[in-house]
Amino acid sequence: MKRLTCVILLIAALALVACAAPTPTAVPAKAFKVAVIMPSAINDLAFSQSMYDGLVAVQKEMGKDKFEFAYTENMFNVPDAAAAIRDYATKGYDLVIAHGSQYGASLADIAPDFPKTAFAWGTAVDTFASKGVKNINAYTVQADQGGYVLGVIAAKLSKSGKFGLIGPIPAGDGKLHIDGFEAGVKATNPKAIVSKTFTQSFSDAALMSQAAQTMVSGGADVLTGTSQAVVGAIAVAKEKNVLWFGNQSSQVSLAPKNVVATQVYDWSPFIKQMVNNTKAGKLGGEVMVGTLKNKVLVIQYNPDYKLPDDVKALADKTVQGLIDGTIQTGVK
Protein backbone atom coordinates (compact mmCIF):
# COMPACT_ATOMS: atom_id res chain seq x y z
CA MET A 1 0.00 0.00 0.00
CA LYS A 2 2.99 2.28 -0.26
CA ARG A 3 1.67 3.85 -3.39
CA LEU A 4 -1.54 4.67 -1.63
CA THR A 5 0.33 6.27 1.24
CA CYS A 6 2.28 8.38 -1.18
CA VAL A 7 -0.83 9.64 -2.89
CA ILE A 8 -2.52 10.42 0.40
CA LEU A 9 0.57 12.35 1.44
CA LEU A 10 0.49 14.18 -1.84
CA ILE A 11 -3.13 15.15 -1.36
CA ALA A 12 -2.44 16.20 2.20
CA ALA A 13 0.43 18.36 1.00
CA LEU A 14 -1.79 19.97 -1.60
CA ALA A 15 -4.41 20.63 1.04
CA LEU A 16 -1.77 22.33 3.18
CA VAL A 17 -0.70 24.49 0.27
CA ALA A 18 -4.34 25.31 -0.23
CA CYS A 19 -4.73 26.55 3.31
CA ALA A 20 -1.56 28.60 3.00
CA ALA A 21 -2.49 30.01 -0.39
CA PRO A 22 -3.27 33.68 -0.36
CA THR A 23 -6.93 34.48 -0.66
CA PRO A 24 -7.70 36.75 -3.61
CA THR A 25 -7.48 40.35 -2.56
CA ALA A 26 -10.80 41.90 -1.74
CA VAL A 27 -12.17 44.40 -4.20
CA PRO A 28 -12.97 47.92 -3.02
CA ALA A 29 -16.30 48.06 -1.27
CA LYS A 30 -19.46 49.63 -2.65
CA ALA A 31 -19.26 48.14 -6.13
CA PHE A 32 -22.20 45.89 -6.93
CA LYS A 33 -20.81 42.51 -7.83
CA VAL A 34 -22.48 40.20 -10.31
CA ALA A 35 -21.35 36.75 -11.31
CA VAL A 36 -22.73 34.80 -14.22
CA ILE A 37 -22.40 31.17 -15.18
CA MET A 38 -22.93 30.43 -18.86
CA PRO A 39 -23.30 27.18 -20.79
CA SER A 40 -21.23 28.22 -23.82
CA ALA A 41 -18.60 30.82 -24.66
CA ILE A 42 -19.02 34.57 -24.21
CA ASN A 43 -18.21 35.05 -27.88
CA ASP A 44 -20.71 32.52 -29.23
CA LEU A 45 -22.78 35.17 -31.06
CA ALA A 46 -25.79 33.57 -29.40
CA PHE A 47 -27.28 32.84 -25.99
CA SER A 48 -24.21 33.28 -23.78
CA GLN A 49 -22.98 36.33 -25.62
CA SER A 50 -26.37 38.02 -25.23
CA MET A 51 -25.91 37.90 -21.45
CA TYR A 52 -22.28 38.98 -21.65
CA ASP A 53 -23.20 41.96 -23.85
CA GLY A 54 -25.98 42.87 -21.42
CA LEU A 55 -23.55 42.92 -18.51
CA VAL A 56 -21.06 45.00 -20.44
CA ALA A 57 -23.82 47.47 -21.30
CA VAL A 58 -24.91 47.80 -17.68
CA GLN A 59 -21.33 48.23 -16.59
CA LYS A 60 -20.84 51.01 -19.13
CA GLU A 61 -23.92 52.74 -17.82
CA MET A 62 -23.23 52.38 -14.10
CA GLY A 63 -19.47 52.76 -14.23
CA LYS A 64 -16.76 50.26 -13.49
CA ASP A 65 -16.46 51.39 -9.89
CA LYS A 66 -20.16 50.81 -9.25
CA PHE A 67 -20.69 47.59 -11.13
CA GLU A 68 -18.35 44.66 -11.44
CA PHE A 69 -18.95 41.32 -12.99
CA ALA A 70 -17.22 38.01 -13.32
CA TYR A 71 -18.20 35.15 -15.56
CA THR A 72 -17.60 31.45 -15.98
CA GLU A 73 -18.21 30.15 -19.46
CA ASN A 74 -18.60 26.75 -21.11
CA MET A 75 -20.28 25.30 -18.04
CA PHE A 76 -22.81 23.11 -19.75
CA ASN A 77 -22.07 20.43 -17.22
CA VAL A 78 -24.27 20.92 -14.14
CA PRO A 79 -21.91 19.80 -11.33
CA ASP A 80 -19.27 22.26 -12.57
CA ALA A 81 -21.82 25.01 -12.78
CA ALA A 82 -23.14 24.23 -9.31
CA ALA A 83 -19.64 24.48 -7.88
CA ALA A 84 -19.23 27.81 -9.59
CA ILE A 85 -22.56 29.11 -8.28
CA ARG A 86 -21.66 28.14 -4.73
CA ASP A 87 -18.19 29.59 -5.05
CA TYR A 88 -19.41 32.96 -6.28
CA ALA A 89 -21.98 33.09 -3.50
CA THR A 90 -19.30 32.24 -0.94
CA LYS A 91 -17.07 35.00 -2.27
CA GLY A 92 -19.76 37.54 -1.53
CA TYR A 93 -21.12 38.37 -4.95
CA ASP A 94 -24.36 40.29 -4.60
CA LEU A 95 -26.12 38.67 -7.53
CA VAL A 96 -25.34 35.30 -9.08
CA ILE A 97 -26.94 34.60 -12.45
CA ALA A 98 -27.28 30.98 -13.56
CA HIS A 99 -27.71 31.53 -17.30
CA GLY A 100 -28.90 28.08 -18.34
CA SER A 101 -32.07 26.08 -17.93
CA GLN A 102 -30.21 23.03 -16.65
CA TYR A 103 -28.96 24.82 -13.53
CA GLY A 104 -32.37 25.01 -11.82
CA ALA A 105 -32.23 22.02 -9.48
CA SER A 106 -28.75 22.89 -8.24
CA LEU A 107 -29.67 26.52 -7.77
CA ALA A 108 -32.67 25.55 -5.66
CA ASP A 109 -30.34 23.50 -3.46
CA ILE A 110 -27.72 26.21 -3.09
CA ALA A 111 -29.75 29.41 -2.78
CA PRO A 112 -31.20 28.72 0.68
CA ASP A 113 -27.64 28.40 2.06
CA PHE A 114 -26.92 32.00 1.06
CA PRO A 115 -29.94 33.97 2.25
CA LYS A 116 -28.15 37.29 1.71
CA THR A 117 -27.28 36.65 -1.91
CA ALA A 118 -29.64 37.23 -4.82
CA PHE A 119 -29.78 34.58 -7.52
CA ALA A 120 -31.29 34.48 -10.97
CA TRP A 121 -32.12 31.60 -13.24
CA GLY A 122 -32.84 31.72 -16.95
CA THR A 123 -34.37 30.88 -19.16
CA ALA A 124 -37.04 29.76 -16.75
CA VAL A 125 -40.14 31.05 -15.02
CA ASP A 126 -39.85 29.19 -11.72
CA THR A 127 -38.40 31.04 -8.73
CA PHE A 128 -38.93 28.07 -6.40
CA ALA A 129 -41.08 30.33 -4.24
CA SER A 130 -43.51 27.44 -3.89
CA LYS A 131 -40.72 25.55 -2.13
CA GLY A 132 -40.06 28.42 0.23
CA VAL A 133 -37.00 29.78 -1.56
CA LYS A 134 -37.00 33.56 -1.38
CA ASN A 135 -33.85 34.63 -3.22
CA ILE A 136 -34.18 33.34 -6.76
CA ASN A 137 -35.39 35.41 -9.69
CA ALA A 138 -36.35 33.86 -13.01
CA TYR A 139 -36.13 35.37 -16.45
CA THR A 140 -37.06 34.34 -19.96
CA VAL A 141 -38.06 35.80 -23.32
CA GLN A 142 -41.11 35.53 -25.52
CA ALA A 143 -38.87 35.02 -28.48
CA ASP A 144 -41.85 34.25 -30.70
CA GLN A 145 -42.59 38.00 -30.81
CA GLY A 146 -39.32 38.99 -32.41
CA GLY A 147 -39.42 35.89 -34.56
CA TYR A 148 -42.84 36.95 -35.80
CA VAL A 149 -41.61 40.41 -36.81
CA LEU A 150 -38.63 38.90 -38.62
CA GLY A 151 -40.97 36.44 -40.33
CA VAL A 152 -43.13 39.28 -41.61
CA ILE A 153 -40.08 41.06 -43.02
CA ALA A 154 -38.79 37.82 -44.50
CA ALA A 155 -42.06 37.06 -46.24
CA LYS A 156 -41.94 40.48 -47.92
CA LEU A 157 -38.35 40.06 -49.07
CA SER A 158 -38.42 36.48 -50.25
CA LYS A 159 -38.74 35.90 -53.97
CA SER A 160 -39.06 32.14 -53.96
CA GLY A 161 -41.52 31.96 -51.08
CA LYS A 162 -39.42 29.22 -49.51
CA PHE A 163 -37.99 29.59 -46.01
CA GLY A 164 -35.47 27.56 -44.07
CA LEU A 165 -35.59 27.51 -40.27
CA ILE A 166 -32.82 25.77 -38.34
CA GLY A 167 -32.61 25.02 -34.66
CA PRO A 168 -30.75 22.68 -32.32
CA ILE A 169 -33.72 21.13 -30.56
CA PRO A 170 -37.44 21.87 -30.57
CA ALA A 171 -37.55 23.49 -27.12
CA GLY A 172 -37.02 26.74 -25.30
CA ASP A 173 -36.52 30.19 -26.76
CA GLY A 174 -35.09 28.69 -29.94
CA LYS A 175 -38.37 26.93 -30.67
CA LEU A 176 -40.32 30.09 -29.83
CA HIS A 177 -38.19 32.09 -32.26
CA ILE A 178 -38.65 29.54 -35.02
CA ASP A 179 -42.37 29.07 -34.43
CA GLY A 180 -42.87 32.82 -34.24
CA PHE A 181 -40.94 33.27 -37.47
CA GLU A 182 -43.11 30.69 -39.17
CA ALA A 183 -46.27 32.37 -37.88
CA GLY A 184 -45.07 35.73 -39.16
CA VAL A 185 -44.24 34.32 -42.59
CA LYS A 186 -47.56 32.49 -42.87
CA ALA A 187 -49.53 35.55 -41.73
CA THR A 188 -47.95 37.60 -44.49
CA ASN A 189 -47.76 35.00 -47.23
CA PRO A 190 -50.17 32.12 -46.67
CA LYS A 191 -48.69 30.22 -49.61
CA ALA A 192 -45.18 30.25 -48.20
CA ILE A 193 -43.34 26.96 -47.86
CA VAL A 194 -41.58 26.76 -44.52
CA SER A 195 -39.22 23.92 -43.69
CA LYS A 196 -37.88 23.42 -40.19
CA THR A 197 -34.85 21.36 -39.30
CA PHE A 198 -33.45 20.46 -35.92
CA THR A 199 -29.90 19.15 -35.77
CA GLN A 200 -29.99 17.96 -32.15
CA SER A 201 -26.74 19.76 -31.43
CA PHE A 202 -25.98 23.18 -29.97
CA SER A 203 -22.44 23.12 -31.24
CA ASP A 204 -22.15 21.23 -34.52
CA ALA A 205 -21.56 24.03 -37.01
CA ALA A 206 -20.86 21.58 -39.84
CA LEU A 207 -24.27 19.97 -39.47
CA MET A 208 -25.96 23.38 -39.42
CA SER A 209 -24.02 24.32 -42.53
CA GLN A 210 -25.11 21.15 -44.29
CA ALA A 211 -28.73 21.78 -43.27
CA ALA A 212 -28.56 25.33 -44.60
CA GLN A 213 -27.07 24.21 -47.90
CA THR A 214 -29.79 21.62 -48.26
CA MET A 215 -32.39 24.32 -47.73
CA VAL A 216 -30.79 26.66 -50.24
CA SER A 217 -30.55 23.90 -52.85
CA GLY A 218 -34.22 23.27 -52.21
CA GLY A 219 -34.96 26.84 -53.21
CA ALA A 220 -35.07 28.67 -49.89
CA ASP A 221 -33.83 32.25 -50.18
CA VAL A 222 -34.38 33.24 -46.56
CA LEU A 223 -32.85 31.46 -43.58
CA THR A 224 -33.05 31.90 -39.86
CA GLY A 225 -31.80 29.87 -36.97
CA THR A 226 -30.80 29.76 -33.37
CA SER A 227 -27.96 28.48 -31.12
CA GLN A 228 -24.23 29.02 -31.31
CA ALA A 229 -23.88 26.54 -34.17
CA VAL A 230 -25.75 28.79 -36.64
CA VAL A 231 -22.50 30.47 -37.61
CA GLY A 232 -22.14 27.51 -39.97
CA ALA A 233 -25.46 28.38 -41.56
CA ILE A 234 -24.68 32.10 -41.73
CA ALA A 235 -21.53 31.34 -43.68
CA VAL A 236 -23.72 29.47 -46.16
CA ALA A 237 -26.09 32.44 -46.40
CA LYS A 238 -23.10 34.60 -47.21
CA GLU A 239 -21.66 32.24 -49.79
CA LYS A 240 -24.97 31.51 -51.54
CA ASN A 241 -26.09 35.11 -51.11
CA VAL A 242 -29.42 34.44 -49.45
CA LEU A 243 -30.94 36.42 -46.60
CA TRP A 244 -30.31 35.65 -42.95
CA PHE A 245 -32.34 36.64 -39.91
CA GLY A 246 -30.53 36.28 -36.61
CA ASN A 247 -31.52 35.43 -33.09
CA GLN A 248 -30.14 36.05 -29.60
CA SER A 249 -27.07 38.16 -30.40
CA SER A 250 -26.29 40.52 -33.24
CA GLN A 251 -24.90 38.48 -36.09
CA VAL A 252 -24.35 41.25 -38.64
CA SER A 253 -20.57 41.00 -38.45
CA LEU A 254 -20.63 37.52 -39.95
CA ALA A 255 -22.35 38.43 -43.21
CA PRO A 256 -22.88 42.20 -43.51
CA LYS A 257 -24.60 41.88 -46.87
CA ASN A 258 -26.94 39.07 -45.94
CA VAL A 259 -28.06 39.61 -42.40
CA VAL A 260 -31.23 41.70 -42.63
CA ALA A 261 -32.08 41.96 -38.96
CA THR A 262 -31.57 40.16 -35.69
CA GLN A 263 -33.81 39.57 -32.74
CA VAL A 264 -31.40 40.52 -29.97
CA TYR A 265 -31.96 39.56 -26.36
CA ASP A 266 -30.97 42.64 -24.42
CA TRP A 267 -30.90 41.46 -20.83
CA SER A 268 -29.72 44.79 -19.42
CA PRO A 269 -33.18 45.98 -18.27
CA PHE A 270 -33.53 42.78 -16.24
CA ILE A 271 -30.02 43.07 -14.86
CA LYS A 272 -30.71 46.65 -13.77
CA GLN A 273 -34.03 45.64 -12.27
CA MET A 274 -32.37 42.90 -10.24
CA VAL A 275 -29.57 45.24 -9.14
CA ASN A 276 -32.11 47.74 -7.87
CA ASN A 277 -34.25 45.07 -6.24
CA THR A 278 -31.23 43.58 -4.52
CA LYS A 279 -30.08 46.96 -3.25
CA ALA A 280 -33.60 47.50 -1.91
CA GLY A 281 -33.46 44.17 -0.13
CA LYS A 282 -35.71 42.18 -2.48
CA LEU A 283 -33.52 39.26 -3.42
CA GLY A 284 -35.85 36.99 -5.33
CA GLY A 285 -39.30 35.97 -6.34
CA GLU A 286 -39.33 38.10 -9.49
CA VAL A 287 -40.40 36.44 -12.73
CA MET A 288 -39.30 38.54 -15.68
CA VAL A 289 -40.50 37.85 -19.19
CA GLY A 290 -38.73 39.68 -21.96
CA THR A 291 -40.96 41.11 -24.70
CA LEU A 292 -40.81 43.74 -27.38
CA LYS A 293 -42.74 45.96 -25.00
CA ASN A 294 -40.19 45.97 -22.19
CA LYS A 295 -37.43 46.22 -24.80
CA VAL A 296 -35.62 43.08 -23.74
CA LEU A 297 -36.39 41.86 -27.21
CA VAL A 298 -34.96 44.29 -29.72
CA ILE A 299 -35.22 44.09 -33.47
CA GLN A 300 -31.80 45.22 -34.56
CA TYR A 301 -31.51 46.14 -38.20
CA ASN A 302 -28.35 45.87 -40.21
CA PRO A 303 -27.49 49.43 -41.22
CA ASP A 304 -25.76 48.13 -44.35
CA TYR A 305 -28.81 46.32 -45.63
CA LYS A 306 -31.20 48.60 -47.50
CA LEU A 307 -34.61 47.54 -46.34
CA PRO A 308 -37.38 48.93 -48.59
CA ASP A 309 -39.33 51.67 -46.84
CA ASP A 310 -42.68 49.91 -47.07
CA VAL A 311 -41.24 46.75 -45.50
CA LYS A 312 -39.66 48.76 -42.71
CA ALA A 313 -42.98 50.48 -42.11
CA LEU A 314 -44.78 47.15 -42.00
CA ALA A 315 -42.21 45.83 -39.54
CA ASP A 316 -42.65 48.83 -37.29
CA LYS A 317 -46.41 48.40 -37.47
CA THR A 318 -46.05 44.73 -36.54
CA VAL A 319 -43.82 45.59 -33.59
CA GLN A 320 -46.39 48.13 -32.43
CA GLY A 321 -49.21 45.63 -32.89
CA LEU A 322 -47.41 43.02 -30.82
CA ILE A 323 -46.69 45.60 -28.14
CA ASP A 324 -50.27 46.83 -27.79
CA GLY A 325 -51.71 43.37 -28.26
CA THR A 326 -53.61 43.89 -31.51
CA ILE A 327 -51.39 41.22 -33.09
CA GLN A 328 -50.93 37.82 -31.49
CA THR A 329 -48.27 35.42 -32.69
CA GLY A 330 -50.50 32.46 -31.90
CA VAL A 331 -47.45 30.50 -30.80
CA LYS A 332 -48.00 28.37 -27.75
Binding site: V141, A171, F202
Partner: peptide, 23 residues
Amino acid sequence: MTFFLNGPIMDPTTLDNAIRIPQ
Protein backbone atom coordinates in the same frame (compact mmCIF):
# COMPACT_ATOMS: atom_id res chain seq x y z
CA MET B 1 -30.93 9.98 -24.73
CA THR B 2 -31.98 13.00 -26.82
CA PHE B 3 -34.66 10.93 -28.51
CA PHE B 4 -36.25 10.17 -25.15
CA LEU B 5 -35.62 13.67 -23.83
CA ASN B 6 -37.36 15.19 -26.82
CA GLY B 7 -40.34 12.92 -26.45
CA PRO B 8 -41.43 10.35 -23.92
CA ILE B 9 -39.61 11.66 -20.86
CA MET B 10 -39.44 15.35 -21.70
CA ASP B 11 -40.36 17.61 -18.84
CA PRO B 12 -44.08 18.21 -19.52
CA THR B 13 -43.68 21.77 -18.33
CA THR B 14 -40.75 22.47 -20.65
CA LEU B 15 -42.60 24.94 -22.85
CA ASP B 16 -44.51 26.63 -20.04
CA ASN B 17 -41.37 26.92 -17.98
CA ALA B 18 -39.27 28.31 -20.83
CA ILE B 19 -36.72 25.52 -20.55
CA ARG B 20 -34.33 25.78 -23.46
CA ILE B 21 -32.57 22.44 -23.36
CA PRO B 22 -34.03 18.95 -23.50
CA GLN B 23 -34.43 17.69 -19.97
